[in-house]
Amino acid sequence: MMLTAVSPMGIAIGKSAALPAITVVEAQERSDIGAVLIVTTRDGGGFAETLSKALGCTLPLTHGDVLQTVDKRAIWLTPRSWIILCAPDDEADLVAAINKAFPDREANASRFSDALAWLTLDGEAAENLLRQGSFLSFEPLGFPIGHGKRTPLAGIPAIILRESEARWTIGVERSRAQYFCTWLAGLTNSFEAAQ
């Protein structure tokens, strides 16, 4: 028998699908995003080179930096950990590659595609929606295009990436993904009324 996969919001894996309840921006669930969590046993970039080689992409060393290759993005999480975004199907290979490169597990890769649910918000109003749930500065100076930050959003753990002026990709802890979408939908109602 084979088990089939569904996304946190109930769509098939590898797709993106619109979330129609969120009205003032274009909102999509992104089940085409997979992830690997890398944690090292010591601080700093000591392992970065080996890691980078195993991954095929360079790891950023400061908060906010997201380094991108054709098929991967590496997000700095802590001085000892990163999230690598990849195609869902590449997750297992990346985990294997890292664990092969570190037989003593000085660095460890964990499957992480399912820990977070990913959404994209597209539209000018997105910034205002985000400002209702987070302390971050969302002005282009405070949150440059291409950067990624970790912070609680609407009270739940989240990673926020700025793709362009008005396009954001957001990963929220999976078990509260539905709540997050409901929250966004509630805000967009309010937002329309307040304009």
């Binding site: 969590l37 944690v39 090292t40 046993t41 010591r42 000892r80 950990s81 597990r105 000085e106 660095a107 460890n108 964990s110 499957r111 992480f112 595609s113 399912d114 820990a115 977070l116 802890e173 999976r174 078990s175």
Partner: peptide, 14 residues
């Protein structure tokens, strides 16, 4: 100084 890494992965698994 302990060489240990901690990865909380609760939500990733059903």
């Amino acid at each position: 100084d302990m060489a240990v890494a901690i990865a909380p992965v609760t939500s990733n698994w059903a």
